[in-house]
């Protein structure tokens, strides 16, 4: 059994292996980065470290969602897997990444091996970033492909 941190983006419930999650924080003061790709929501200061925030909705090919009271940032354990970042920073503290989500859900236990392939009616972006679907008590849990999510491009 694996544990999944779950969160909502739009009307969908997404899951990430909890081992890949460093912490979950409330949204505050995101500094936007001009000229960056649209799925870069901006930067935040997490206790003296700069964290790059990805807008999960945009990354999956949807409209950016406004920050609400329920919005949270899921800070990931592993740094981004970009051309510049994978040399010295691997697993390091420099390239911290976070995902902006609409709301967070419970931690769900499920057997990862039971995951089914994602449905066929996906956008290109979704096809790339989703790794599977799990049926849980909470409903359908869409699993994210963290590695793809954190690779640039």
């Amino acid at each position: 059994m694996s544990q999944f941190a779950t969160f909502h983006v739009g009307d969908r419930l997404f899951g990430l292996d909890i081992l890949g999650v460093r912490e979950i924080i409330r949204v505050f003061n995101i500094t936007p980065v001009p000229r960056a790709e649209s799925h870069i929501r901006g930067l935040i200061n997490l206790r003296g470290q700069i964290v790059t925030i990805l807008d999960l909705a945009v990354r999956l090919g949807h409209e950016a969602l406004p920050v609400k009271d329920s919005s949270h940032i899921v800070i990931l354990k592993h740094g981004a897997n970009t051309a510049q970042g994978n040399g010295r920073n691997q697993g390091g503290t420099q390239d911290l990444m976070g995902l902006l989500v609409d709301a967070i859900g419970d931690v769900v236990e499920a057997e990862a091996s039971l995951a089914e392939a994602p449905p066929a009616n996906l956008t290109d972006a979704e096809e790339r970033f989703l790794s599977g679907v799990l049926k849980t008590d909470e409903g359908l849990l869409v699993l994210l492909n963290l590695q793809e999510l954190l690779s640039s491009g």
Partner: peptide, 13 residues
């Protein structure tokens, strides 16, 4: 503080 590889492409910073 160095920028994430995600942002280095902007060249402005």
């Amino acid at each position: 503080k160095p920028l994430s590889g995600f942002i280095q492409g902007t060249k402005c910073f």
